[in-house]
Design a protein around this nucleic acid. Structure first.
Lengths: 162, 162
DNA sequence: AAAATCATGTAAGCAGTTACATGATTAC
DNA sequence: GTAATCATGTAACTGCTTACATGATTTT
């Protein structure tokens, strides 16, 4: 794939749990090539100039699978929404209600999208990767549902608080 | 509070949704003071040297409350666990099972901790901030429960996948 | 005697973000 | 004609992480 293709692929598939900026993608691929984890060839681009097509090397694949097999690193999780809510006593209570309601709306919209992706996925019968896509999607759906139900409880807690 | 106090406070309270490294804390406070958002005075430290006690200024408080009132920014969410699982087709299926089981174990241990914090919190009767602490804690508990139940479903999906 | 706590920070390197720059083609 | 798509990247800045440095006191 080209950097551009990778970007499009990520936007379609990993965007909800892993994003990269284009400005990070180009130098990263260059670095990977320097380390011989990927090779590249050039093609005529559809509209102008050249497309650089990258392909993983044998060594790159072995490094990748090694990485996939190791337990995931604990990476920093940050939730600005919760941070603001946690210090909600510094502002008027209506502010927290607004934040919760806006958050719930976003979550609900996202859930609709995930549910429709799930329906579409059922039509793909002979996709080898299907169960792995399903897992990630189900994770998204279940977490969204939990967050939505938290929103309702949270509003309730705030309401009865003096 | 001093930088050291802030660090201790964060570890007790915000650690599950916002962490900062000490090495970030010291220069950040310096920057805040330069911008007149905080002032500082020096005290004798308990064990050796001096303690720098920071206090928010009027202007700092007004900037803070303005920030609290604005809807949260969408910050990058990254989940390395899901990323590895998503590409689970590149490695043996047992690898994904292991990842899921290890993840579930971690979540369960965390849930026990959160539940005990929740029990303790009930004893604090006249804490003004209590409902806001409760909200954040409940969020953690509900999300953990959802993730744990996802783990079981995920194992099941993988089991019936060829 | 060693490790943890209290308390301050600096330095170096890597990662992430935003803005900028270029240019053809295609869809509205 | 304007916006979106295809396709590449660079530059400048900001943020994050790891390691290092110092030193007294208290707990194990």
């Amino acid at each position: 794939m080209s950097a551009y293709d990778i970007k499009a692929f990520m936007e379609r598939s990993t965007t909800h749990f892993w994003k990269e900026h284009e400005a990070q993608l180009y130098p990263t691929l260059k670095q990977l090539q320097k380390n011989k984890y990927v090779g590249s060839k050039e093609e005529k681009a559809k509209k102008s100039g050249v497309r650089k097509i990258y392909q993983i090397t044998e060594n790159g694949l072995s490094v990748l699978t090694d990485w996939l097999m190791q337990p995931p690193d604990k990476i920093t999780y940050r939730n600005e929404f919760l941070l603001k809510l946690f210090f909600g006593d510094q502002v008027d209570k209506t502010v927290s209600f607004k934040h919760i309601n806006a958050y719930k709306k976003e979550l609900s919209e996202q859930l609709i999208i995930f549910n429709s992706i799930q329906s579409e996925l059922k039509n793909f019968k002979n996709l080898k990767r299907k169960p792995y896509v399903e897992l990630a999607l189900l994770y998204g759906i279940m977490l969204l549902e939990a967050e939505i139900s938290w929103c309702d409880k949270a509003s309730h807690i705030l309401k009865k608080a003096k």
